[in-house]
Design a protein around this nucleic acid. Structure first.
Lengths: 143, 143
DNA sequence: TTAATTGCAAAACTTTTGCAACGCT
DNA sequence: AGCGTTGCAAAAGTTTTGCAATTAA
């Protein structure tokens, strides 16, 4: 309870956060590793992971739901939802309203189940435009 | 496009599906492996994974969103949402209404973004009752 | 018979971790 | 100086896969 750690501003952490904030690709740790490597060539994979976990705990970034694939990270921490392309694995931001019934819904669930919700996640899945076009072309040539 | 596979009804697949359908634990592959092993002692881990993937593709079961932990599987394929305990990792079914604005929402998103949504997922996170009690006790004893 | 499936073990992947060296504060 | 952090490499954990043997249809 009194193990307050004073984190330092290392060059690596700064670069990781900056690179993540400046992209909308919702990169995986590996993608980000490559991006960061351009500015900090000696950085290691472990450092990227350690910092992503730290920044996540500090609430400076978000870790999106990852399936069996690797996690995606988001430097945009304003509440918003995502669309995941089932084919190419791209992740898109959705500009729809975040459940404003949030509080009511949370209370409803609490009343019904006794479960106190901290946060929720609403993910949409489908095929992005590019992939849909590709799929149509494949179907055509199959006939 | 013409690689239609005729799947067989193997004893193993049957047991895996039955065991998954009869529990509400939303087990991981490993948990299910242990459950199935009681009835099919010689079954292997690979078989469990292969069948879970097959049953998932066939739409007979659901794979829930897994973080960095292992995936959870659900034998209940009726639309419903889940609550994930951040501490003990238990998964609970929620008995709240599934977005009935679903179609409207889907269309709105399509209009706005051109993205055609196949399905969505709404996950809630927090601490279950048991874990909340434990946490309170720890805080008490810390004072 | 024959092609899908299994069991086993190895491989593939993603993420975490131990440790000595390094570098913020 | 003190200790949080890094780079490196090894380890851990989850899921997939190659292959010969087995089995459902």
């Amino acid at each position: 309870m009194f193990n307050k750690i004073k984190h330092r501003n290392t060059k690596q952490r700064k670069v990781i956060l900056e690179e993540l904030k400046k992209t909308t690709l919702h990169p995986t740790a590996e993608m980000l590793f490559k991006m960061v490597k351009k500015r900090s060539p000696k950085i290691s994979f472990g450092t990227v992971y350690r910092n992503l976990n730290l920044l996540k705990e500090q609430g400076q970034i978000l870790e999106l739901t990852c399936g069996k694939d690797s996690c995606r990270y988001d430097g945009d921490i304003t509440p918003h939802y995502h669309f995941f392309c089932l084919t190419c694995k791209k992740v898109f931001d959705l500009n729809i309203s975040v459940l404003d019934k949030e509080e009511k819904l949370y209370k409803d669930i609490y009343k019904k189940t006794g479960l106190a919700i901290k946060y929720h996640r609403l993910d949409f899945y489908g095929y992005c435009k590019e992939c849909e076009i590709k799929m149509k072309e494949i179907k055509k040539s199959d006939k």
